[in-house]
Structures are given as structure tokens and as C-alpha cells.
Write a protein that binds this DNA or RNA. Structure first.
Lengths: 199, 199
DNA sequence: TGCCGCTATTGAACAACTGTCAATATAGTG
DNA sequence: CACTATATTGACAGTTGTTCAATAGCGGCA
């Protein structure tokens, strides 16, 4: 049973093909890692030839970067805070969306996002850029800021994100020690608690 | 100019050869990632034939796992808390050793440890085991424990470790926002602060 | 000292995979 | 219904991981 809908020699618009391949990539790379996925397998699964991947992404590495970027954009969009409201409330909503997102895709999240963080230069750049953009949400609205924007607090927020990432992933693997509400409470209150440890 | 001391056809005891290859692996994999390091290059750098690597480690993946395990053991040994003294003081000493270790090897630490955390099943197992053993140091001495040993606190300590890892790596990349003392203070006091966020 | 056996080590052959490119087929257009 | 622009292919070349029978170095023993 082949999972791909096999239809011979269909010619798509570049955008459609591109997003088809990216979606397939996200799905396949959620379970295998990059070097466990050969281009032959990927091409067959997509119902295209090997060469087409090189036409679109320039190579295996380029394909992987595009897939990671695609997943990162998706994560960023799905955790966007609501337009209006109290700053703390907006942050809480965004965090809730993050927990939901990771819980819904924890295999893919671990495989793609974690691999990006520990991967090559270009991949880490995608990872860093995305999480810095998410950190900006914490520092948004300078007049009634949640926490002051200094190099030190930037450093702490970045580290806090790592903590949250690990916490949520561990919790998804075994949710018994904490309820969902307790998890959200720990995440939310740990940020100001962390900033308070600064001299 | 070849960096390896080229001497033809020397026969070593298995233990010596093994650790020579592991040390070389740690050194080479600190800058390149695994798939950027071909076995040909590795063998030439070590002054041995390709086949010998397969004799010792069974393949590229096995070699990588051995190198990661080697580095993890080194990290674990070098951050061992002193034998006696106050529990909090012992923890502080261990944390200081950790900061020093990462600072001295941040390229290698990032490349090996981070890659292990986001890598395949066997690699993550090494990573998890090592950091769980380091977490045990926090929970040691049940009579005057620093923090209670429950599933919830286990989860938090694990997440705290991720935060510390990221914090120290970021700080190594750019130490200007915090002095070394401030960094150590944040790390130490953030652990009880985090546990206090539990209901 | 000089042979001998054990085994560390080799290198060539094999298999699988990535990357390249000129040729081909397809969808839209006048 | 051609006809053109281009999405797509398939065969080819180079590189890399893996296997295995053959070789060569070191310690022990006479």
C-alpha cells in the first residue's frame, strides 16, 4: 500500500508543487531524521522524480532548510497573540497556543525544531530568528512592558524559552506529574520569577 | 600540512587506539557536524584505514555514539560535586564547574551535546541518561534534601537544566550582559525560584 | 636470538546515495 | 490546432558508507 496518491506525470504550478513537497517533508521528517530519509524515498513518496527536488530546493540540505523554515513559520503563526487586550493576558493566550501546538505535533516538533537548534549554521539561524521573534512578543508595547528590555533580560527570556520548550516536550511524553493548568501556571509565573533573580 | 603525526603502520593495543580515535572524534566533531565529516577524512586524519573504524565502532553511527558518550562521561566527571560539605555549597561548586567546562569547550559542547539532544533514539538516550544522573546530584542526600523528590520537581529540574544549558551557551557567545558572578547567581537562585512556582 | 601464532590492520570490491544536465512532455495561449 | 514556455524527467558521474578476505606487526616461547 503506497501512501502517495499515485498519478502519472502531472504538471503543477511551482507554488503548489513547492508547498506539496514542503508539507510532505514536514510529515516524513517528523518520524525519520534527515540522513534516514533518502531523496529516492522522498521522491517516490511524492510521486515525482529525484531531479525535481534539486530544481526546487537545490539539494537535500536546501530542502531540509525549507522544511524547517516552513514548520517554524507555522509555529510562529499559530502562536500569535490576539490583537488587543491586556499584555499579560495576550502573553498567556500565546503560551496556551504554544502548548497546544507542541502537544498536537510533538513528534514533528522534536524532530524538526530540536534538530534545527543543534544543526548546521543555516538551520540554527532559522531557529534563532524564529525564537527571537517570539521573544519580541514579550517585549512588545514599550509603554506598559511586562519586563524591561535590556541585554540581560533578553538573555533570560531566551533561556526561559529553552526551559519552556523542554518542559512542554517532557510533559507531552508523560503528562502525569502536572495537570495542564498547573503546567500553564508554572510556565507563566516562572518568567517574572526568573527575571527577579537578577541583582 | 597534515595535522596528524604521520607514522606508517603502527599497531596499538585496542584500548589505546580506541581512545585515540575518540579523542580525535571529539576534536573534529566540535567544528563539523556528523554528515559533514566523511570517514575518509577521519581515517586520514587519524592515520589509519577506513576499515579500522568499522572494526572498532561498527560504523559511522556507532562511532558518533561512542564519541558522544565519551564527551558526556567527561562532562559528568568534570562537574562532580566535592565529597563533603553543605549540600547547597556542593551544588554551587558543581554548577561553577559546569560553567567553566562549557566555557572552555563551547564549540564542542554545542556540537556534541546539542546534536545528541535532537538526534536519533540512541543519541538521545545518552543525553537523557547523563542529565538525569546530573539531576540526581540535586536530589542526593534524602535527609537534608535541597528540594523534595517528586515527579513534578523531577520535571522542573530537567527543564531547569535546559535553561541553564541555553543560558551558559548564550553567555559564552556574548558575555557582556552579565558578569560571571551574576550568571552563577542567576543559575543558583533560579532553581528554588522555579520550584516555588509549583502550587 | 629467531621463529610462530594471535590479532590489529589493511585495501580493494560492493552498494547506496547525492548531485548534474541535456532531453522530453505538458499545460496554457493566440 | 499548432506552438511556446517551462515543469519534469531519466540516465550518468562522482562521492560516501559498508563488507570481508588477506596482510602485517607485536609479544611469547624455544
Amino acid at each position: 500500500m503506497t501512501t502517495a496518491t499515485r498519478s502519472h506525470r502531472i504538471r503543477l504550478a511551482p507554488d503548489q508543487r513547492r508547498s506539496q513537497l514542503l508539507d510532505l517533508g514536514v510529515r516524513l521528517l517528523a518520524t525519520r531524521s534527515l540522513d534516514e530519509l533518502s531523496i529516492d524515498v522522498l521522491a517516490e513518496e511524492a510521486g515525482i522524480s529525484r531531479g525535481l527536488l534539486y530544481h526546487y530546493f537545490g539539494g537535500k540540505q536546501g530542502f531540509y532548510e525549507a522544511v524547517v523554515q516552513h514548520a517554524a513559520d507555522d509555529l510562529f503563526a499559530q502562536t500569535a497573540p490576539p490583537a488587543g487586550g491586556e499584555p499579560l493576558q495576550r502573553l498567556h493566550t500565546s503560551i496556551t497556543a504554544y502548548v497546544d501546538y507542541v502537544q498536537a505535533n510533538h513528534a514533528g516538533y522534536r524532530s524538526l525544531v530540536k534538530a534545527a537548534g543543534g544543526g548546521n549554521e543555516a538551520l540554527r539561524a532559522i531557529y534563532e530568528t524564529t525564537f527571537e521573534a517570539m521573544a519580541d512578543r514579550v517585549f512588545a508595547q514599550p509603554d506598559d512592558a511586562i519586563i524591561p528590555d535590556t541585554p540581560a533580560t533578553r538573555l533570560l527570556v531566551r533561556a526561559w524559552q529553552s526551559m519552556v520548550e523542554d518542559l512542554v516536550l517532557s510533559w507531552c511524553a508523560d503528562p502525569t506529574p502536572l495537570t495542564r493548568e498547573e503546567l500553564l501556571h508554572v510556565i507563566t509565573t516562572s518568567l517574572p520569577a526568573l527575571v527577579d533573580t537578577l541583582p
